[in-house]
Design a protein around this nucleic acid. Structure first.
Lengths: 337, 337
DNA sequence: TTGAAAGCGCTAACAG
DNA sequence: CTGTTAGCGCTTTCAA
């Protein structure tokens, strides 16, 4: 094991100045009362010696670290990498460090992560759960340790924790509605095989929009499977093989939507004239394809801000109260409808 | 501040069993000698009481945490989010936690991050530096604290630290060569405005390939600016306004390359017949566009593995020795050439 | 305003 | 194999 070398502690600073280390501690943290003169002197000397507070000792002593943990199913999809990136930025500004964990969509891994968080006495947790996290039970340990947590985007079905969600029902409803208004009558829906509520909500929105427009729901137009572009490709193939083909397709992810467009173009179906396509997420990838993909956007900056505020409120107020914030999605019209 | 509630410590476990807490410590860590019977008893009881080791105390006592820090300029580009995601996975498996930091391409932020890392006594650091980090000096504090670090993809120009780099010269060389072999004669090069060596190396590779094929280097074919799709779009516009237009374009990032393709298609220039395009990074976005973008891939799994191995070697061996690993890139041929 | 004392939870070193 | 002692660097509490 490597040993630290030049480690300067408050005692070193104190010794140099011929004062007590407690005074140094006070001065450096701007707490208690220290004569201005002494304080300045201490800060100068600390700087001079290259003193860096030992966070390990501080956190240990304070029984709590200044680390915020972010738990996501997967860091690679645009939605999560953008969320984490933005979240980190404001957390860093507020003086927190951020630890990131990936559950890889496995509830068991998620549980392990949460358990390990206890050990780190993190200040708070922001989580988006795995596709099949229904129970909140493995988050209970956090509650019993008094560690606040907030869910974003994907929350357990039954939870009393604070959460920042998107109105997925509305997003799908609006998207389908937009296609119908532009003259489409046979709208299909492509989902992932994931069971999470956000996808079920979108399905409900889809159904409701059909109903409100006097269109009948046809089961064969609802397909699911996969998460990526290639999956959109195969699902589109399936849909276009139907006797009564769709003239509009709503995909629960932009990547899937892009796969759909790729299939349609390959088979000389024109988008959006013959078939309109809408996705979810406002992934920049959507503007790479041709035509550019119309998408349901869930404002990430807004989600980041809301979840950070909720979390910080709980950390500061020391109460783990329930608060639910719903973000309204917005359709970004591009070329595919 | 919220206070922890049910915190179970080794002393609690010891008290319950009527033994000394040091024995509990030994048993739980499988060190020293403890009678098997006692050990089993301890583990059972610890589990029963829901004991979770206080990492804060452990790390403090050990003067070192089991946290690996990853510092990247920006988490959003595919290259970095994929690297971090993969890195995290193998680090977690090896029992390390990962803290991620973004320098936002600012050397000053990078310096702050490094300084704060000292406080956390992280076990090691993996970094890809900002576009204008030339000096390694702000990493010196790590060295003096005995914290090993490894650079990946982007390293300071002069460094004695271990690093995992891509042979960018070769990547550009091969890409240009491929275009020439397919009959192109006026190859342009679009770079970012970033000054980092990796981009200069690519430029050198570009020039060398021209030379080796007996083509003359024309300064007007080398343009730079921006980092994103829209930048590729405007640079392409600039290039196609030249008297003597290019018939092949190498972009230093896939996103830029996609912007180029979008411009060309918009102006009815066919790709790859009239103009071939190649990018860098193997960003999945490249398959969203039409035609799909040919790209220079730098194997991320290989880079992750190499840098993790280098870092772990240093952590384990307690020597901060210099080692440089170069990853050879590979061209992935798709439709744009 | 400053100092002295005590202890957070854990582990290394030594003793038994 | 198990217990005792001591201390990591810091901060809170109490006393001067």
């Amino acid at each position: 094991m490597i040993e630290s070398k030049n480690t300067v502690t408050i005692k070193d600073v104190a010794r140099e100045l011929g004062i007590h280390h407690v005074t140094v501690s006070r001065a450096l943290r701007n707490t208690g009362s220290v004569k201005k003169e002494t304080r300045d002197q201490i800060k100068k000397k600390a700087n001079e010696l290259g003193y860096k507070p030992n966070r390990l000792a501080q956190n240990f002593r304070n029984k709590r670290s200044n680390v915020l943990a972010v738990v996501v199913p997967d860091l690679r999809p645009y939605f999560f990498s953008k969320f984490v990136s933005d979240f980190m930025e404001i957390a860093q500004e507020a003086g927190y460090s951020v630890m990131i964990f990936q559950s890889s969509e496995k509830a068991s891994v998620e549980k392990e992560i949460i358990d390990s968080l206890i050990g780190y006495r993190v200040a708070g947790v922001i989580a988006s759960v795995t596709k099949d996290t229904v129970q909140e039970s493995h988050f209970d340990v956090l509650k019993s340790e008094g560690i606040p947590y907030v869910f974003f985007d994907r929350a357990p079905e039954k939870t009393e924790a604070s959460q920042v969600l998107v109105n997925n029902f509305q997003g799908a409803y609006d998207a389908v509605n937009a296609m119908i208004k532009s003259g489409k009558k046979e709208i299909a829906y492509i989902s992932t095989h994931y069971q999470h509520k956000i996808f079920r909500d979108r399905l409900e929105g889809y159904k409701e929009a059909l109903k409100d427009n006097g269109l009948t729901y046809r089961e064969e137009l609802v397909v699911k499977g996969g998460f990526f572009m290639k999956d959109g490709f195969v699902q589109a193939e399936r849909l276009m093989a139907l006797e009564k083909k769709p003239d509009g397709i709503l995909a629960v992810r932009d990547e899937i939507g892009i796969g759909v467009i790729k299939y349609l173009k390959k088979t000389d179906v024109s988008v959006p004239e013959d078939v309109a396509v809408i996705g979810f997420d406002n992934d920049p990838m959507g503007v790479a394809c041709e035509p550019e993909l119309t998408t349901v956007e869930q404002s990430i900056p807004l989600m980041v801000e809301s979840s950070f505020d909720l979390l910080l409120g709980q950390i500061k107020n020391a109460k783990l109260n329930f608060e639910k914030k719903v973000i309204e999605p917005k359709i970004i019209f591009r070329g595919s409808i």
